[in-house]
């Protein structure tokens, strides 16, 4: 078992940080793709960042809430500010409204990411335009722990799930703006107050996720495998 473990993660240092070893152990079992997705824990998350550049910008807030059995579990949440030395020049503070001063009170990034990994466990990640948020977390992991440290979780993108609800013909003329979180929230009747805090957006995304998934379920998408496909 240990050999297999070493071989598979040979790029990583021999002395894995304890939280990471625990995290990896959660993925040893084969992913049960034929099980009902209702049995899985989903973590719907969102990040606020200093900008949209995956290489140079930094995470300054992580917010998440868990969903299980089509229910948002408010108790199972994650909400952390991340300290960044923004040099007073955050480009997107107009969007998320996090003042530099607020960011100064945040947790050390390394600790914050570690805490998030612990919270995440082997849940299936859900995010709106997931690639960006996952990319930000992976970039942070790599910077603090080295190459090979990246999220192992399966993930779902609510924008992509929404596309699956559309007939094929609609793809041809689609406009990316149609899949913005605000637009979709409006379409599904979800209130938008306190947008642009990470956890606020995560909650909106979670509601969106419940509604989209219910529609996919009606079309016969029952297993976690078919949901992720």
């Amino acid at each position: 078992m240990f050999d297999f473990f070493k071989k598979r993660f040979k790029k990583q240092p021999d002395h894995l940080p304890a939280f990471w070893a625990t995290y990896l152990a959660l993925f040893e079992d084969r992913f049960a793709k034929n099980c009902s997705f209702r049995d899985f824990r989903f973590v719907v998350f969102d990040t606020e960042t200093t900008g949209f550049d995956l290489k140079n910008d930094r995470v300054c807030q992580i917010g998440a809430v868990a969903v299980q059995n089509n229910t948002i579990q408010l108790r199972d949440f994650f909400d952390t500010l991340v300290y960044q030395d923004t040099g007073g020049g955050s480009k997107v503070k107009e969007i998320h409204g996090l003042r530099d001063k607020t960011i100064q009170t945040g947790m050390d990034e390394k600790k914050a990411v570690e805490a998030f990994i612990q919270y995440l466990g082997n849940a299936v990640i859900v995010a709106h335009h997931a690639a960006f948020d996952i990319g930000m977390i992976n970039q942070s992991l790599k910077r603090h722990f080295g190459p090979g440290f990246k999220l192992k979780n399966k993930f779902l993108d609510t924008a992509h799930l929404e596309k699956r609800l559309k007939p094929l013909s609609a793809y041809a003329v689609e406009n990316p703006a149609d899949y913005a979180l605000d637009i979709l929230a409006g379409k599904y009747g979800i209130d938008l107050h306190d947008r642009h805090t990470a956890i606020g957006d995560a909650f909106i995304t979670a509601l969106l996720f419940l509604k989209i998934v219910a529609r996919l379920e009606k079309r016969g998408v029952m297993t976690i495998g078919s949901l992720i496909a």
Binding site: L210, A214, K218
Partner: peptide, 11 residues
């Protein structure tokens, strides 16, 4: 009380 709430979706 709201801290412990759940938000359920029903089709």
């Amino acid at each position: 009380l709201c801290e412990s709430a759940e938000v359920k979706h029903l089709s």
